[in-house]
Write a protein that binds this DNA or RNA. Sequence first.
DNA 1: GTGTACATGTAATCCGTTACATGATTCC
DNA 2: GGAATCATGTAACGGATTACATGTACAC
Lengths: 225, 225
Amino acid sequence: MTARRTTSQRHEVPPGDGLPPTAWAVLGLLSFPGERTGYELKKWADASLRFFYWSPAISQIYAELRRLEARGYATSRRSGPEEPRAKRSYAITEQGRAALAGWAGGTEDAGPPVLKHPLLLRVWLGHLTAPDQLRALVAEHIAQTEGDLKEARDALARAAGTEAWSHPHIALRWSVRRLESEVDLARAMLADLEEADPPAAETTPSSEPGPAGAGQPAEDSPTPG
Amino acid sequence: MTARRTTSQRHEVPPGDGLPPTAWAVLGLLSFPGERTGYELKKWADASLRFFYWSPAISQIYAELRRLEARGYATSRRSGPEEPRAKRSYAITEQGRAALAGWAGGTEDAGPPVLKHPLLLRVWLGHLTAPDQLRALVAEHIAQTEGDLKEARDALARAAGTEAWSHPHIALRWSVRRLESEVDLARAMLADLEEADPPAAETTPSSEPGPAGAGQPAEDSPTPG
DNA sequence: GTGTACATGTAATCCGTTACATGATTCC
DNA sequence: GGAATCATGTAACGGATTACATGTACAC
């Protein structure tokens, strides 16, 4: 409900582009010099874009490449007999570059960032789970995020050699910091959970004993937090 | 490629539930005491779950509610003539609560958090955009995030009165901190962008002048960072 | 009496995933 | 010779959105 106008009445398709975000991402990969196969694009996306954008199914990359070509935003070329493998390599066209630059420059709103965090949903539903089990889930998430963080750092280190690609580099730095923050956030939440529901232990003989009204709040209460 | 096993061979559908994440979220909303209409669920999701999970289309909430009822996870009741409006109210069943508790407890992996950040894609593609235009996009994102942050803080303040709902409260606290971090991250990125490409100004007479090899790196270079 | 909020749905469409199918090349 | 990687695609399906359709209640 955050504004986001519905383009007015009578289904007039956005005259210009109307491409899904994934198409722009694929075209973006092609915007760097050189030509590439769908397979290569997939590997590349998994190594960089995945940290802040997405990691698409390979079948969809092929589909987007065909669409991009149909629009004149990319051209493709079958490998000749000199190359060992039969494959199809794509390159961006002038038209494609212009359209992409328009998208990247922000003439049409690219939409807000989307975050879908199942762990948080589980925490939100913490009343259904045993406290230590919930904390274990958070701890597991921390471990997993630390793994991602390591991978992002490796990617950043790899990219450090290849200079002149400053913008991908900046995006990766953002990703590393973001993952660091994700770990911090999870740790802070763990602390909150412990405070709200101290682990069964002999070292906390203060405050309320426990089973007062923690179970079910008054019936018919309106939408909480 | 972060593990995430493909459930092994031969399409054996997950025997138990196989519900999409959205269904669990809707059922989760129902797991708090009281009965609610689809319309109320939508409003509630927009006021809380949206900060860390999702904000579904109203039509889909109705669809999920019907599915949940078909599975026996929820029951519905039409409003009688005593109520001013004709509507259908849903409540969770014992079965539904049990299934949801199983999901929330983590027996089946709920999947990793998903982040799709169009701004970062644009930054990654910064070579296509004028430096100050790109910085303007980041600045706009900061402003927008600060708006979200304010809303999240308001939600937290509203929830502060309604105690005993400690878990939703903890999730909201996480969201507030997360949005604060998002602002910090964007500011840091802005600084990186300024360093990489100093704004046309008279106050920085040091380091390299600029247009050396910043345009197109050597042709045929392999997949960069 | 007009607009907004409440309230529920259907239909069309599309993005995206999973599963399936196929085959060549390279590495061990 | 067998596994992993390279390489490309089709088919089925499902989740989710947008647009459309409809109507009541309430506030101003």
